[in-house]
Amino acid sequence: MLLPGWLNSDPDHWQSRWERQFGYQRVEQADWTWPRRGDWMARLDEVLLASEEPAVLVAHSLGCQLVASWAEHSQHHARVRGALLVAPPDTEAEHMPPQLHNWRPIRRPRLPFPAIAVLSSDDPYCAPERGAQMAADWGAELVLIGPRGHINSESGLADWPEGQALLAQLRA
C-alpha cells in the first residue's frame, strides 16, 4: 500500500512506477496541498479496514510521518505487516513550508510492526542525524543510500529495484 507524501507522487516517482508496474494500491488523500494529520490518519484507517489482507505500507516523505502518527493512535495495528519508510521529512525544521506545520510535533512511538527507514545523506528536507534519530525512535532498521536527495523522481532511481529488495525483506 503506497503512502505518498505532500503533493502526492508525480508520474516519474518510484512509487508511481511501482503502482503501474506491480499494481500496488495508492492511498488517495482528499487534500494533497494542505495535508491535515487527522484526516490523513482517518483515511489510512479507512483503507486498511476495507482491505482483506494485512498490508505492507510503502511510505515516502510525509507518508512516513503518517505511519508514525497513525501507529500512535490506531487500534488496527494487526492490519499492517511492516512499513518501508523512505525519506522521512523533519517537519519540525524551521524551513518547512507552512502547509506542514500541522505535522508538528513529530510522533515518535516505537512502531508495533517491523519497519525499514531509508535515508539519503543529502536530503534537503531532513538532516541525516535527524532521520537516524526518527528511525531509532520508531524501532526501524536504518538503511543509508548515499547522496540521493529526497529519494524521489529527481533522484534518478527509475523503478528502484533496491527499494523492491527492501520491501521483499519486510514481506518475508
Rank of each mutant, 00 (worst) to 15 (best):
P112E: 12
L119R: 02
V86F: 02
L170N: 10
E92F: 08
A168F: 09
R107A: 12
I145R: 07
P147F: 05
D137R: 07
M134V: 01
Q164A: 14
A93C: 05
G82Y: 01
R148G: 01
P124W: 06
P97N: 07
E141I: 04
N102K: 07
R104A: 08
G139K: 02
P161K: 15
A158L: 13
C126M: 07
A87T: 07
D159W: 09
D123E: 11
L166N: 10
P161N: 15
L111S: 09
L84Q: 02
M134W: 04
L144F: 05
P124E: 07
P161F: 14
I145Y: 01
P105K: 12
G139E: 01
I151G: 02
S120C: 04
L170Q: 09
I145K: 04
G156M: 12
R130D: 06
G156Q: 13
P147I: 09
P161H: 15
G82N: 05
I116Y: 00
F113L: 08
Q164C: 12
L170H: 12
D122Q: 12
R148C: 13
C126Y: 01
H101S: 09
L100A: 05
D122H: 12
R104I: 06
E162T: 13
A83R: 01
I116G: 03
M96A: 09
P114M: 09
L144C: 14
A83P: 03
E129D: 10
E141K: 10
A127N: 10
G163P: 08
W138H: 02
P97H: 10
A165P: 06
W138L: 03
L157K: 08
R108H: 10
H95D: 12
A132C: 06
F113V: 13
R104E: 01
V118P: 00
S120M: 02
S153E: 09
A83M: 05
E154D: 14
L84D: 03
V143I: 12
E154L: 14
G82T: 10
S153Q: 11
I116R: 07
V86Y: 00
Q169V: 15
M96F: 01
P112W: 07
L84M: 08
G163A: 13
A132S: 15
P109C: 14
E154Q: 15
Q164R: 15
Q133T: 06
D137C: 08
Y125I: 06
G149P: 06
V80K: 02
V143D: 00
I116Q: 04
L157P: 07
R79G: 07
A78S: 14
A87V: 05
G146L: 07
Q99D: 04
S155Q: 06
L100M: 10
G139F: 01
P88M: 04
Q169A: 13
Y125L: 10
S121F: 04
E154G: 12
C126K: 02
P114A: 08
A168V: 13
Q169L: 14
E94V: 14
S153H: 09
L119T: 03
R104K: 15
G82F: 01
S155M: 08
A168L: 13
G149S: 11
L142N: 03
L111F: 06
A136N: 02
Q133D: 03
G149R: 08
H150Y: 10
I106C: 11
W160Q: 08
P89I: 07
D137W: 04
R81H: 06
V86S: 02
